[in-house]
């Protein structure tokens, strides 16, 4: 893309945002685990795709579920990228980002809000999570609140483990979960 075209597109993104036409802004971000995809609405961070997720499929899904006005706009995600960088560097223990919860409903929403409240460096079990979300028998559903969490890392589902102490699964791979917990233990 030529510099002139870059400038034109930058102007377009700014004008689209000013006119309320930028429903979903996205950007990529580097991480120690690979490239992340971040997406936000005017309300806040709505989706974070881990390195093993397909970018095109994720964007197509957002176009279908939120709005097809999906634009690449890194300038709108600077704070998100900054906080994630600091987190991976061990310099940040909690995120101070507005969250758009619109992709979660009912029990899953309550469970994910429960996950968001687990402090840095601590863990909870799937059973704890089910109880927090108001249905202690819904342990499997608590599992899917984690496995299909639209905003991993910021909604730290890696802090939810099995009652027997095993790590359980992680959308980004068990090794990533292990390394994240190590990072938070200061190892």
């Amino acid at each position: 893309m030529t510099p002139t075209m870059d400038k034109s597109l930058e102007r377009l993104r700014e004008r689209a945002a000013a006119e309320g036409l930028l429903d979903v802004a996205y950007a990529t971000a580097d991480s120690p685990f690979g490239t992340l995809l971040l997406a936000r609405t005017p309300q806040g961070l709505v989706r974070l795709a881990l390195p093993n997720e397909d970018v095109d499929a994720t964007l197509a899904d957002l176009a279908g579920r939120i709005s097809p006005r999906v634009l690449e706009a890194p300038g709108r995600l600077e704070e998100e990228r900054r906080e994630l960088d600091a987190y991976f560097a061990g310099r940040r223990r909690s995120f101070d980002l507005p969250i758009d919860w619109q992709l979660s409903h009912g029990f899953l929403l309550r469970a994910r809000q429960g996950i968001a409240a687990i402090p840095y460096g601590e863990t909870r079990t799937y059973a704890d999570l089910a109880r927090t979300a108001g249905n202690e028998r819904a342990v499997r559903a608590a599992g899917s609140a984690c496995s299909r969490n639209p905003i991993p890392l910021v909604v730290p589902c890696h802090r939810v483990i099995r009652s027997d102490g095993a790590l359980g699964l992680y959308a980004g791979g068990v090794e990533m979960k292990e390394r994240l917990l190590e990072l938070e233990r200061g190892a």
Partner: peptide, 19 residues
């Protein structure tokens, strides 16, 4: 209709529209 993310339209057609 299943509309693709608008960014796809920019990636594929912005240069041509400008021309």
């Amino acid at each position: 209709a299943e509309l693709p993310p608008f960014q796809t339209l920019i990636d594929e057609h912005a240069a041509e529209v400008m021309a």
